[in-house]
Amino acid sequence: MNSTRNPRRNPTTPNQTPLSQRRLKTKPVLAILAILLLGNVLWFISWLIPDKGKEIGSDEQVAVIDGDVITRQDWMVAMEDRYGKETLQNLVNESVMEKAAAKFKIKVSDKEIDLELALMRSAQDKFDTAMQNLSDEQLRQKLRSQLILDKVLTKDVGIEESSIKKYYEENKALYNIETSYRTSVIEVDSKKKADEALSELKDGSDFSVLAREISIDSASASLGGDIGFITEKQENVDEAIIKAAIGLSDGDVSKVIKLDNGHYAIVQVQEVAKGQSFTYDDVKEHIERELALEQVPQHVTPEAFWSEFKATWYYGEEKK
């Protein structure tokens, strides 16, 4: 959030984990960033599908501009042209990974997905923009597919337990996760505007819609005010925002606050993720898998398994 974040402090201050030591924890984020973005598109396209009984090629009007009509068919064709290939690829990849899990007898538990979610939320990187508008179910499915792929790739790679224990002992701080707050902000340049915005919210206006309309922080405004998960000790977010957020529960909206840059803001907490501490037994398999991934070919994607599971698609090409 450009207009509300303070300059970053020295990254090597005591009690702050160096970026190089965070690598294992954040690696799954980089691997699934692209397909998570496609999840949004899949949801949006599914929403566009007409009600049962209507033809997809219907001439139903969805917009009119100075007499020019845009039909549902026009809309659907445009969506398929822009996003159809990527969305279909995402669906095929998920199906292929499920086939791989069955073939290699791979299991992915809810507990494992919960761990990956907690680690991602504490990574404090730009992953949160990819999570925007993803339902919990969509996000968990993406993580499940990635975990299956990782387990397939590392099933024959052995890691000494001493290496796993050594990494855990050297990086225990990574697995003591603070409570974090999924936060949205509306930022304006005067208290009067902030008071007016708060009044609108109390009258029932949607926070994300209002943020897109009036917030002067362009980075967060484009996401409906969403700045992702923040923690009490976060160093790159205005302290006033942090103080406001940690006093709120899910769905609550703060009073008007003043920011360090002289602007005013309103904060909403969408979700509170309680802090967790993970023991060696909790994260042993996670660390082992991440260390093993260092020993397998890089940039392996689900497409590498399409041929094995006879997957084809109909965009004028066949994956081999």
Rank of each mutant, 00 (worst) to 15 (best):
T87K: 04
W43A: 14
Q21D: 13
P14K: 07
R23K: 01
V92A: 00
K54H: 13
N10P: 00
Q16M: 15
R82E: 08
P7C: 09
I45L: 08
T17I: 07
V41C: 09
P28E: 00
T13W: 05
L88E: 01
N90A: 15
R22D: 04
V29G: 09
G39C: 02
D74F: 00
Q61M: 12
T71V: 00
L37V: 13
T87L: 05
T17D: 01
N10R: 03
M97Q: 03
V62I: 05
Q21G: 07
N90D: 07
L37W: 13
G53R: 02
K27H: 12
G39V: 03
P14N: 04
E86Q: 06
N15K: 14
A31S: 03
P18V: 06
Q73V: 09
T13S: 12
I56R: 08
R9C: 12
L88N: 01
Q73H: 07
I35T: 09
G57E: 05
D74A: 01
I35N: 08
G84M: 04
T12S: 15
N93F: 06
K85L: 03
R9W: 11
I49N: 10
L42M: 08
G67N: 09
Q61C: 05
Q89L: 04
K85H: 00
P14S: 04
L36Y: 04
N6Q: 14
M79S: 07
W47I: 11
A34Y: 14
G53A: 02
N40V: 05
S46Y: 12
S58G: 10
K25T: 13
Q21S: 13
V29P: 01
S95R: 14
I35L: 06
R82Y: 09
D74I: 02
Y83T: 07
L33E: 07
W43N: 15
N6A: 14
A34R: 14
T26S: 15
L48I: 10
K27S: 09
Q89D: 04
I70E: 08
L38P: 05
L33N: 03
K25N: 10
L19D: 09
L42W: 05
D59F: 03
V41Y: 14
S95H: 11
N93H: 00
P50L: 06
L38S: 03
W75I: 08
D68F: 05
R8S: 10
M97G: 03
E60T: 05
I35W: 06
A34P: 12
M79T: 04
Y83A: 11
V96F: 00
I56E: 09
L91E: 01
N40P: 06
T87H: 05
R9G: 13
D68V: 12
V69K: 15
R22L: 07
V77R: 09
L37I: 14
P28R: 00
V64K: 13
S58F: 10
K85I: 02
L19K: 12
L91W: 03
W43I: 13
T12N: 15
R8Q: 14
L24C: 02
P11L: 01
N6K: 13
L30S: 07
L37F: 13
D74T: 00
R9F: 12
R82P: 04
E86L: 13
N93Q: 10
P18R: 00
T17L: 05
V77G: 02
R8N: 15
L19F: 11
E80K: 11
P7A: 05
R22Q: 11
W47P: 08
M97L: 09
Q21H: 12
D66W: 11
T12E: 15
R8G: 14
K27N: 09
V92M: 04
